[in-house]
Design a protein around this nucleic acid. Sequence first.
DNA 1: GTGACCACCTGGCCGC
DNA 2: TGCGGCCAGGTGGTCA
Length: 283
Amino acid sequence: MNQKFIITKKLPELPEVETVKETLKNLIINKTIRDIDVFYDGIIKDISVEEFKKYLIDKTFTNIKRQGKYLIFILDDIALISHLRMEGKYFIKSTLEDRSKHEHIIFYFTDGSTLRYHDTRKFGTMDIRNIEDIYDTAPINKLGPEPFDKKLTVSYLSAKLKNKSIPIKSALLDQTIITGLGNIYVDEVLYRCKLNPITKSNTLKKADLSNIIKYSSIVLDKAIKLGGTTIRSYTSSLGVTGRFQNELNVHTLENEPCKVCQTPIVKTKVNGRGTYFCPKCQK
DNA sequence: GTGACCACCTGGCCGC
DNA sequence: TGCGGCCAGGTGGTCA
């Protein structure tokens, strides 16, 4: 087998972000920012580094929330909205520790510790909002319901997809329709639903939509309980690794036998995204 | 309104 | 051994 296709990139999806949120809650709540160093300003959206510092210095972390794959740090009256994208991570370290190559933003706390944003590919983003504007402005106000949300019903999904001829895989990756599903979990959900990833979204039956809702919730719930998925080396703060990779049925398992019918799992591309499915179970 | 495509960015891998 | 090129990923922007 071509080695290039074995290596799958790791990425933080909703379960991984939930793990990061819960881990950081125990570590930074009630800590006050004394200073900030920004080594790569491309992560900060819309405002200058000076404004970013002005908003956050002397502020205290009072809560951490999550919406989809976004982390929302509450600092008094300000919200720092962070998206980890492909490889973003947070670490707590002492002020004395040297900065590693990929640490792009360091928050210095008054107690001598630091919160460090580490991102190998510099894809992550940070937005600043007033707390009263969090849910009324982009990016949060564009997000659809999460799989656990009661708003996610068959009628909601049917209305969203009725004019969509794009593959169901692409539709499920669209965070304005359902928020929280990423490439790994969409493959796993579609496998459990026995749906081919290229099925046109507007051809699905109500039973299919019901299954999508049901299995999205089941898959993400289980992944959260297991701390997410560590495919190559993704770890959350303080090196917490996920165990959901042991539950994967198709993703990254090209040429491995399907657990149901033993047919080799196929890897293809759907709108440029690496996609794994069983050609027999998912017709 | 919809869908396709591109940019962003870098480590790891393959082929030469 | 070293170099060039490809690939992976989520999201936002642009264009048809």
